[in-house]
Amino acid sequence: MNRSGSRSGSATHGVMRVGSGRPPWPLILPALVGVAFLVLPLVGLVVRAPWPDMGRRITEPEVLAALWLSLSTATVSTVLCLVFGVPLAWLLARTEFPGRRFVRALVTVPLVIPPVVGGVALLLVLGRNGLVGRYLDAWFGLTIPFTSLAVVLAQVFVAMPFLVISVEGALRGADRRYEEAAATLGAGRVTVFARVTLPMVLPGVGAGAILCWARALGEFGATITFAGNFPGTTQTMPLAVYMALQSDPEAAIVLSLVLLLVSLAVLATLREKWVNA
């Protein structure tokens, strides 16, 4: 290790924290490469950002409108994903029904197909002439494309798998005997789910919700295809970034940074809250 020989070497080892130890370099090296790969593009954005007029640019009404739309739709989408995704995860994890494996495979479809294709698929189903959309239009006068609802639906479509997979994993890992204990105390299935199962898998639900929210926030392809691009109603931050890229790359960098910082701030706050809870 050094000139003073083995005694000082072993002394150094003695000082090191027991248990955690020093991670081996075959792990550290790829980890560092991984971090660099994830962080360098960020550095690129920061370096190229037009810092002097940053303040003016980020307070432009269009930017604020897009930011607000992004945050609100991503949040609504996450709530919808929770409302529909948690029960779905429960069914997949806890019940046997014909075609369950098939349904589980279907849940991952939005992860596999390009979001733009997902957007087209949504149009074909919920569009004005879509399989379902035509009846919504004919019976209720409801057209979904080009509305904020369409933005939400596009986000739910692409983000739901993250929640379902995360929650299903948590449910499979949960100790079912607690549910039995609750049943012997007189709890019906709904009570067991709400008061025992759900609190047990809450970390999984939280992780799923965060992934879901982050995915919804960054959603572009399905949104622009299904919801279109109109400032204030359907132009979320990723769409604004893409549009800015066509004419004013610096503006695109500004918007990207804003989206990035706001989402990091939200995620850090949530994490802080949960860790302290």
Binding site: R128, I224, N229
Partner: peptide
């Protein structure tokens, strides 16, 4: 006032083709 400002001509055409 349109319902959408599409990213390119093709996207406009798609919306028209689908009757949206």
């Amino acid at each position: 006032t349109p319902v959408t400002y599409e990213e390119n001509v093709r996207a406009v055409l798609t919306k028209v083709e689908l009757g949206e």
